[in-house]
Computed example of a mutant assay.
Amino acid sequence: MSINQLDINSLDMILETMVKTVGDSKSEIFEIEEQCRRDFEESSKELEEIRVRVSTVIDESDSLDTKARYARKRLSEVSMFFNNFSEEQVRDAYEKAHKLQIDLQMNRQLEKQLRVRRDDLERRLKGLQQTIDRADHLVSQISVVLNYLTSDLKQVGEALKDARRKQDFGLKIIEAQEEERKKLSREIHDGPAQMMANVMMRSDLIERVYRDRGANEAMTEIKSLKVMVRNALYEVRRIIYDLRPMALDDLGLIPTLRKYLQTTEDYNENVTLSFINLGEEKRLPPKMEVALFRLVQESIQNAIKHASPKNISVKLSMTREMVMVMVKDDGSGFDASQQKEGSFGLMGMRERVDLLEGEITINSQPGIGTLVMIQVPLKV
């Protein structure tokens, strides 16, 4: 058996591994989606019960308020004409007014707790729905990838001349896909899922604090719980934003880049990021906006991960015929004339630009920094 034949067989084995890995990923994402659907149904039922209880408590509060006003009026009359009533009548009027006032306060406190729980459930349902939608979209995308792996990609061996590069490329695809799957699972588990579990435990604690220590300390716990829920919501939005910024579809490339740079700067305190738009601000074809956003995102992440820069600037210019993007950093840089082992991120960037029929130039020197320039034609 020749070496070339052996390499082709190795590539076939890699493709089979890729198909199995992607298929397993699809099953795991589907399980996450189903679990979210179950949680959504349970939370929806609880939310409906809470809404009914809120309505009931409001009615009770209105009734108690009416009775309390009547009792206070009665107490006022007794106090005004004290000599006309017996001691027992005076005591009874006072006790009734006091008891109704206490009942009213407790009922209103319960109403506040139920409203907070209702709001928490509504936010949780919104987050779960977003996760379900994203998981459903991912399953669809993975189905397309599986179809590609089982059909078109099997012909890659005939098109590639360097068997070793084919093998490395296939392995990197597996690693990247596996790493992304682990990252998504880990972020959901360690972030929103853990925070939601803490919210549930904290809500039980609030009930005990209210019973044992009173409403003031319970309100302190509720404020802390609101901070925890707000942080969970922030984490969910961040994960969704990392997967695909919704602003890209709604607002376009330039506002999304501004938001992405601000968010990235918030998460990386030692780096200052700036954005300058030098040309027209207009919408581009969706596929082009996605590709350009990913190219900028990859350039920035490469700089932060490998070059430890203090400043990163992004400049974008749009004309009628061309879109030009420049990403410059003052990091450690590298020797651009040498092909760095495992530099599949740069290879992926070049492939994206080729699909847009554009050009990409990467200028870098050790100790000076890196400049990535991308030019993409706009077809009228």
Rank of each mutant, 00 (worst) to 15 (best):
K96I: 13
P285H: 10
I32Q: 09
V19Y: 12
I206G: 00
G23L: 06
E289P: 01
D65M: 09
F293N: 01
L125M: 09
D39V: 05
R258C: 05
K126R: 14
M228R: 04
I368C: 06
V54E: 06
D136T: 14
E359C: 00
T264Q: 15
A247R: 07
F85S: 02
Q194F: 12
R51P: 00
Q339Y: 08
K183G: 06
T56F: 12
M288A: 08
A71I: 02
D103L: 08
L225E: 06
P285M: 08
S143Q: 13
G279N: 01
H137T: 13
I360G: 01
T370H: 04
K328M: 05
T319F: 08
E187C: 07
K328T: 11
S10Q: 15
M318W: 01
D136E: 15
V145C: 11
V327E: 01
Q141M: 13
I368F: 08
D39I: 06
R123A: 07
D62W: 03
G157F: 04
S27K: 15
V145Y: 10
R124L: 07
G191W: 03
K99S: 15
D103H: 06
V290M: 12
L205Q: 11
E158V: 09
G214M: 05
A135C: 14
D250A: 08
R115F: 09
S2D: 14
E48D: 14
M347N: 11
G367S: 04
Q89K: 15
L64F: 09
L6S: 11
S140P: 00
E175C: 07
S224F: 04
I254K: 03
L346Y: 03
L75Y: 03
Q141C: 10
R123Q: 13
D136I: 02
G369S: 05
M201W: 08
E289Y: 02
K328Y: 11
S299D: 01
Y148Q: 13
T220C: 05
M288F: 04
Q89S: 15
L292T: 00
I222M: 07
L292V: 05
R91V: 11
P366S: 10
R124H: 07
S43H: 10
V227N: 10
L160D: 04
I374Y: 00
V229C: 06
P377Y: 05
D335G: 06
V199F: 07
E265C: 04
N311C: 06
T263P: 00
L253K: 03
Q109I: 12
I360R: 00
D329C: 02
G170S: 05
K172Y: 14
Q5S: 12
T66V: 10
N4P: 06
E95H: 08
N198M: 11
S337R: 14
